[in-house]
C-alpha cells in the first residue's frame, strides 16, 4: 500500500510522512511511522523534529544577541612592546584596509561579518517561510539551507585565526596576542547559529510544499 501510494503518486511529490514512513536521518533507513528507533543504527526516529522551529528561533536569538558584543568588544588584544592595541572585528578589517591589505580585509569582513549576518538572515528566512509560507520554491529554500549549513562552519575562521595567533604570538614583552571578549562571543554566536541551522528540520520545507500542493489539488 505504501508502495502503491508511492507508485500511484507518480510524478506527484509525496513526503515520507505522507507515506507513513519515517526516514532515519543518520543512515537513511526507512521505518514505518511510529517506530521510535532505527532498526539499523538505533538512532531516534521522528517524522519531524519536535520543537524544531522553536529551537531554531531560540539558538538564532542567542546567536544574534552574542553577535552584538562580538562586534563591540575587541577581538584581539595585541601587545607590542608594552603598548596594547585592541581591535574589534570591523576595526581590524578597516585597519587592514589602511595597511593596503584589501584582500585580507575582504576575507575577514566576508568571513566574520558577511557570512554570519547572511546566516542569520538565511535561517530566519527559512524558519519564517516554514511558519508563514514563502514564494520561494522548496528547492531554492533547500539550496539555501544546504549552503547555510555548509558555510556555517567557515564562520569560525576568525575564531581559528585568533586561537592560532594567540597560541603562536606569545613573545612576552615584545609581542603577545590574546583573545578579547569578542572572540568568545563570536565563537558562541557562530556555534549558536550552527546549532540553530542544525535545529532546522529541512523536511518542514517540503511540508509546506505538500500543503500548497494539496491546496492546489483542491
Amino acid at each position: 500500500m505504501q508502495v502503491d501510494d508511492l507508485a500511484t503518486s507518480g510524478s506527484k511529490q509525496v513526503t515520507a510522512r505522507a507515506a507513513n514512513l519515517v526516514a532515519c536521518r543518520s543512515c537513511g533507513t526507512l521505518a514505518p511511522m511510529g517506530q521510535t528507533a532505527c532498526r539499523r543504527c538505533h538512532a531516534a526516529l521522528s517524522s519531524r523534529e519536535p520543537d524544531s522551529l522553536s529551537r531554531v528561533w531560540a539558538w538564532l536569538t542567542a546567536g544574534v544577541i552574542l553577535y552584538i558584543p562580538a562586534n563591540i568588544y575587541p577581538m584581539l588584544l595585541t601587545k607590542t612592546l608594552g603598548s596594547q592595541e585592541e581591535s574589534t572585528i570591523v576595526g581590524g578589517a578597516i585597519e587592514l584596509v589602511h595597511y593596503g591589505a584589501y584582500f585580507v580585509a575582504f576575507i575577514v569582513l566576508f568571513a566574520s561579518v558577511a557570512i554570519p549576518v547572511a546566516k542569520f538572515f538565511a535561517i530566519g528566512l527559512l524558519a519564517w517561510s516554514v511558519q508563514r509560507g514563502s514564494r520561494l520554491s522548496g528547492h531554492r529554500r533547500m539550496q539555501l539551507y544546504e549552503i547555510t549549513e555548509f558555510i556555517g562552519r567557515w564562520s569560525m575562521i576568525d575564531v581559528f585565526v585568533v586561537a592560532i595567533l594567540t597560541a603562536l604570538v606569545q613573545l612576552g614583552f615584545l609581542a603577545s596576542i590574546n583573545p578579547g571578549p569578542a572572540a568568545v562571543c563570536f565563537a558562541l554566536s557562530v556555534v549558536f547559529t550552527m546549532l540553530s541551522a542544525q535545529s532546522f528540520d529541512p523536511r518542514l520545507i517540503w511540508d509546506s510544499i505538500e500543503e500548497s500542493d494539496r491546496r492546489a489539488e483542491r
Binding site: 522553536s54 544577541i65 535545529s199
Partner: peptide, 15 residues
C-alpha cells in the same frame, strides 16, 4: 511542545 522548549533558556541566559 514548542512552548516548553528548554532551548529558549539559552538566549535568555545570553541576554
Amino acid at each position: 511542545d514548542r512552548r516548553f522548549s528548554l532551548v529558549w533558556l539559552v538566549p535568555v541566559v545570553a541576554l
